[in-house]
Design a protein around this nucleic acid. Structure first.
Lengths: 131, 131, 131, 131
DNA sequence: GTGGTCTAGACCACT
DNA sequence: GTGGTCTAGACCACA
């Protein structure tokens, strides 16, 4: 399952946000090969957006072969080649950190500030307990 | 001075990106009260966009009282009350870290991975050398 | 509904005239909260101006929170706090009269001239008949 | 002599406001045939506007033969055929009143309100004492 | 069909 | 040379 969060104030089209979040879900392994997505109708109701908006997002992902729609059955994850290799994961980490570091540096935060703050983030630290 | 970076592939309108980057520049202190912005024409050439696109961005910020334009003279920073207070800075750090942590956690990166990677980021560590 | 009148000879930008007339419409109660404005395209055709000119006017009022636009649906009146209080109405009357009096006095018209002429104005006197 | 009042917030170009006020001065008899206007330089200083702005206004009125400039001597009123005939005066009164009545009616003011308010206007009533 | 964005290019207003 | 306004026309986003 996947949960969507829409931001109406950042100028990014809704259908684009849906696409991005599905791709993100696949990339991070939240969405697995063959998994069924919410129906267009259900998702439209959940997100309180127009049916066509969801439809457009799914259609674009279908064109990219990321999803397949089985008429009358539902929409499924078709491809997970986006799943990252070890090398890609390392690169992703570097990219994310660099991007984050650039913004943080612009605000003048030091690496000590950041490390201290990150140590407070539950989401990053709870995994230890889970293991 | 301020440098702009446009992303044509993320669906965010160009004029919106310009607005956001000016506000970011003010927030981070890169742009100071009274400082002159690039002329609409100069920026349009630099960014390879139409004059009206830049103009639209400046106009919106003028309506919001962030900029003032003196016709025939130029466009200037009018307000810097966006400059963050200490409390806001602390909050900003928390927000940035949380947001970053959420994405990083989704990819399964651990806090150790991240801290190690951040220690490699020149932009965050060069300040020590400067001092 | 609201009717727009443009003056191309007074140097005031068209989009500014549209803005002013919408604000005037709100102030006088002609335009009510939630009321839909003409579509940008319809108004552009009616006024024989470019779509972007109307769009610019609506956009500025949207930034100022006077209008809201629902993409694909239309543009609506969002705020009517411009509607005048009793005190403001009294002040408005005074302002209007003073402004009018200044011009009339410059032409040397007397208060008797004016009162006589105003008594001829249908628009001011028709209300009696309606009652 | 004539005094100018500029409004920077109504979108009417400054040079246009200067032109309009000179024409208004002539029409109302404040400015008489042969009367000298302030020099371009003096007026620019008084109004705190650019010299070229005043210059442009005067130049446009020269083209219309309303003013003449005698090199090194100054600028003078050249034509006063704008001075209104009796018939024109009557028409002007009607126009002014109609225009005023339209706005006042939009705000819902009654003719009684208006007459009462106008009776308070010093500028319209002081003339009686002068006579 | 409704609003949004962008372009290219023209011309005006002002310093 | 700076910003402002407008047009015509194209294409996108959304309901």
């Amino acid at each position: 399952m996947i949960s969507f969060v829409l931001d109406y104030s950042n100028g990014v089209p809704i259908y684009r946000q849906i696409i991005d979040q599905i791709l993100f879900g696949i990339e991070t392994g939240q969405l697995k090969l063959g998994e069924q997505l919410p129906t267009v109708r259900a998702l439209a109701v959940t997100l309180k957006v127009n049916l066509n908006t969801v439809s457009k997002a799914y259609k674009e992902l279908e064109i990219k072969n990321v999803l397949t729609t089985h008429q009358g059955s539902g929409t499924y994850i078709n491809r997970v080649d986006n799943l990252l290799s070890e090398k890609d994961r390392a690169r992703k980490l570097t990219d994310l950190c660099n991007q984050f570091a650039t913004v943080a540096a612009a605000y003048g935060f030091t690496i000590e500030d950041i490390k201290a703050e990150l140590s407070q983030c539950e989401i990053l630290n709870k995994h230890h307990h889970e293991k």
